[in-house]
Amino acid sequence: MGSQRSYSFVFAIIVLALLLAFLLNVSSGSVNIPFTAVLSGMFGGHMEVESWNYILWNYRMPKAFSSILVGGGLSLSGLLMQTLFRNPLAGPFVLGISSGASLGAALLLMGTSMITGFTVMPFLNDVSLVIAASLGSFLVLLVVLLVANRIKDTMALLIIGLMFGSITSAIVSVLAYFTTAENLQRFVFWSFGSVGNLSSRQVALMGAIVGLGVLLSIVSIKRLNAFLLGENYAQSLGISLKRSRLTIIIATGILAGGVTAFAGPIAFVGLAVPHLTRQIFDTMEHRILIPAVFLYGAILMLLCDVIAQLPNSANILPINAITSLVGAPVVIWLLVRKRKMLF
């Protein structure tokens, strides 16, 4: 679009902030490793204590990268949803997309054993969990979109999202009642949300999935911009509504579903980050917003993870609690200060 402002300076600062947040993230944790040691370790240097090396490469680095993917991916899916639904309060958690992913994961982790009578553990791997969670989020997304086309009312849409959350948690409780303790435990741990505990291989897989979602978003930039005018105007500009909606939904489903599959349902990032980003990047142009929202989300997630680690203590808080503590006040602040949230 026709904005003459240049955002390259702001982008430079944001990238710098991302690097700093990354360094802060990898140098904090339950074991105190000196910052200089972390730096030299990262660039292939020798570390005084062998276990530090192990912690850095097998625990902290995967965790930092998965924070980036989780934060960036969820935030981007939130941005896509806000544009697609023409609704500033849309986000993967609010609209029940995360609940859908939970349902998919719950059905896989607990449902299959219930139906077939034996556990599917041998067949259960990351890929099947990703597929199940993504399918769950697609399903909810499609239903929400169907409803959104019928009902133009913002509030009704949000209430329907909440209802989906209730329905999924009801189904999950029913499943939990009948499943084995072992399967239930797996699901409960997953549902706490966590960016840690992922192997490098899992992080790489999540990276590929998020990458695909980002790619689809970039391909959709022009359509997303046209959607800012509304669907009728977009159509009059030569945009095929069905194809564009489908591409954007697939991108959203892959991003929200893929991330949720690995990290569990993580609240508020998808809703809050696009609004926070617009405080700095005062534009609606998706060519600027897509990278900006991704970077901003990554930074926020890295910092939330630092807080969740409770530096120098052995305790780890559920990341979901931290993002809610950060995200919910942000949404309230935006509503109160701006009166109405615009998108």
Partner: peptide
């Protein structure tokens, strides 16, 4: 749909 668009955009 978006009232946040600038005139020029």
């Amino acid at each position: 749909a978006s009232k946040n668009l600038r005139v020029q955009e």
